[in-house]
């Protein structure tokens, strides 16, 4: 459900239009923190480690 913003101009408390989903994402530092850790952890670290772990051992 989209949030709404309240005008902070004194004397003006009419509800304005809903906040777009993209702006909700950009305004949520903890969601961004989660994304910023999850994406490189999966695509760089875990994927890379799995490739190394699956290398056959030389005999």
């Amino acid at each position: 459900m989209a949030n709404t913003t309240e005008s902070n101009v004194p004397g003006d408390d009419v509800l304005e239009e809903p906040v777009p989903a993209m702006q909700q994402l950009l305004d949520n530092p903890f969601l961004l923190l989660f994304i910023g850790i999850a994406v490189p952890t999966v695509l760089y670290t875990i994927w890379g480690v799995m490739e190394i772990v699956n290398l056959p051992i030389a005999k």
Partner: peptide, 21 residues
């Protein structure tokens, strides 16, 4: 936001000449 998604992945360019990956 693109930095948050993708910037750290550039770390891989240090390993472009490494075998195994």
């Amino acid at each position: 936001l693109l930095y948050i998604f993708f910037l750290q992945l550039a770390s891989a360019h240090h390993l472009l000449a490494d075998p195994g990956l």
